Simulated scan of single mutants.
Amino acid sequence: MSEFRNLGQLPNVAWLSIVSEAVRIRILQSCVLREAERGKVLYRFGDAPDGLYGLISGCIRMDTVQSSHGPTMLSLFHSGSWLGEVELFSRMGRLTTLTALRPTRYAFLSNAAIDAIAREAPELWKALGNLAAEHVSLAVAAMDDLAIRSSRIRVMAILLRLCGARIENGSGGIARELDVTQSELAQLANLSRSVLSDLLNEMEIEGLLSREYGKLTILDIKRLKLEL
């Protein structure tokens, strides 16, 4: 589908393979291309759902604010990721907040476009259900990560999830450079910053990752997976 090269990996994800080629083309043709600067919020917790967001390039952070402790980072998403499908089924308020962590290009498929396509091709809802199931699998993996007794293995599992390599056959792309601070990673792993720092030092010496201010770069995804 050379006509959709400007959409990057978005046309080739698993959930779009469920619909017919004609419906897939209509979905992609109905997308509006948008850009977001670093720090721009695409939508906030509680907002009325307006459509589906497909990440062409850049990085998106997903937060929840359901905790009394304030916003909590859930995960990072990279090129090829489609987000925002869950609330489309009930039209309830957004459950999370999406924020661009770097200059980001994305495709937006509005509620009106989704409804219009689904009226003629009801299988679109099954495809969106598959996308939702994929995100449920990711959420289950996140809960499983927190149950890992070994702090080292738990951190490795979280790093794989943040770079998009935690579950097999995920739609989103894999990114080795992660826009995450050590404080955020410590919160995700339920560890103190000092314990996390020691673990990251070990992994850096072993050649598994490298660190810069506010960033981590995964150098060997395969070795991280082998330790899980």
Rank of each mutant, 00 (worst) to 15 (best):
S171V: 11
R176L: 14
S183G: 10
R166F: 10
D115G: 02
L178H: 02
E85Y: 03
R119C: 08
R94E: 05
I174R: 11
N130K: 10
V86M: 13
L185I: 04
S183A: 11
G172E: 15
D179W: 10
A133T: 14
I148G: 02
T99S: 06
R102E: 15
R166Q: 11
H135C: 08
R94S: 08
I167G: 05
E85V: 09
A157M: 14
A100F: 13
R149I: 14
D179Y: 11
A139D: 10
R102P: 05
E85M: 05
S150C: 04
T99Q: 04
S171H: 12
E85W: 01
W82I: 15
D145F: 07
A141S: 14
I158P: 01
R176E: 05
L146Y: 06
V136C: 14
T181P: 04
L101A: 10
A139K: 06
R102S: 11
I167F: 05
N169M: 09
R176G: 04
E85H: 05
Y106E: 07
R166N: 06
T104E: 12
T96W: 12
L185G: 08
E177A: 06
G93D: 03
T104R: 02
W125Q: 03
E120I: 00
A133W: 12
R152L: 11
A100T: 11
G84E: 05
Q182H: 07
N111H: 13
I158Q: 05
D144H: 13
L178D: 01
A141G: 09
A118F: 00
P103S: 02
S151K: 11
G172Y: 08
R105H: 15
A175F: 06
R94M: 06
